Amino acid sequence: MKRFILVIILLILPATAAIAAHWHQLPVSFNYEFTSLYFVDENRGYLVSREGLVVSLDLSGATPQIETASFPSNLYDICFLPDGKNGFAVGDDGLILQSVDAGRNWTASNRHPDMRLTAISFIDSLHGFIAGSNYSKTSIDVGFILSTSDGGKTWDSLNVAGRKIRHIDISPEQLITVTGLRTVYLSDNMGKEWDTAEVASGKIPMAAVIRGNYGILVGGSGLLALSSDRGKSWEITNVLVDTATYFDILMLDSKRAYIVGTYGDILYTEDSGRNWTPEASTVGFDLNAIQKVGRRIYACGKRGTIIYTDLEE
């Protein structure tokens, strides 16, 4: 009997060795709703808030070092180029912020007062994409995708039409996945051509991510859709509680993933989203975004929440 138990343990350990065990709150105090975060390494990160704040964090010392910059528009997403110096943030009123000095200073450009820019991501130092919607009284929620091929100096509108286009993910294989209302947009050639896949649900999608052939899409009222054909089709499941909304996804690979949502919910899967295990986030406020850098995972949300965990070796 003892020999049988030992064999089972050896079989289980490799599959669970990378599970994050404990979540901790950063010792910082904010009363903002953080909508997105981007860490360039485990100790240096940036966050944006719905109140128009850009926060720079340096966690390398005994006490976190904090710098802030304030802007008059809601901010929804932030990212940095591979050099860690050039960064961008986007928000309401067509606001695009840029920093060329690792977040010490930010300059703003307003493209259009009726644009809500909700996501930004770069493939490399030159090619990037912005997702957003037009929320004027005459054309509410008409979505669009902007692209740049010169490192963000200029942005052009792509020939992609939809509603509530809000989230961008770029896989290690450079598959671009953009989430819209009932539609997922896919491009594997730098945005030159786009395929679409319908998500037949009356619920609002928030984010879709694809790794390998497997994809996970989450949204309002417990929406969960899964793909096993690289996003060409999506299967709606009824696994998640329909009173929760999930806002963001972190896929570690084609099998393992985290999703974050309302009331501090963090769920983990090891089978591409078929089954989920809740993790104790230690907070009760909505979590809007999650990111992995090195062996550390960060998440942020309402009430200035910033939490982290370290993946076990």
Rank of each mutant, 00 (worst) to 15 (best):
H24C: 00
V48Y: 02
L47K: 08
S49T: 04
G61H: 04
L47H: 09
P72I: 09
V7A: 15
L10W: 07
E42M: 12
G45K: 03
I9L: 15
E51S: 12
S36R: 12
P14K: 02
Q65A: 14
I5E: 12
Q65P: 01
I66Q: 12
S70K: 08
V48C: 01
L37K: 09
A18H: 13
L57R: 00
S49H: 02
Y32T: 02
P64A: 09
S56D: 02
G45C: 02
F71I: 09
T35Y: 10
A20I: 15
G52D: 05
T35P: 06
S70V: 07
T68R: 15
H24W: 06
Q25E: 15
L47W: 06
H22P: 00
Y46M: 09
P14M: 05
I5A: 14
E51C: 02
P72W: 07
D41Y: 12
T16D: 00
Y38V: 01
P72S: 11
E42F: 10
R44F: 14
T63W: 02
F30P: 05
A18L: 12
I66F: 06
L11Q: 08
V40A: 04
Y38D: 07
G45R: 00
N43H: 13
L6Y: 08
F39R: 06
V55C: 02
H22V: 13
S56H: 08
V28I: 15
T63F: 10
I19M: 14
L37H: 10
A18R: 13
L11F: 13
I5P: 02
I19R: 14
I12F: 08
W23T: 05
S49P: 03
N31S: 13
A69V: 06
Q25P: 10
Y38C: 09
S56G: 04
F71P: 03
F30N: 06
A18E: 08
P14S: 01
P72D: 11
S49C: 07
A20W: 07
S56E: 01
S36H: 13
L13E: 09
H24G: 00
A21C: 03
G45A: 06
L10R: 05
Y38T: 07
T68E: 15
D41K: 10
V7H: 11
V28L: 11
L47R: 05
P64G: 05
L59S: 04
T63G: 00
A20D: 08
D58N: 14
D58I: 02
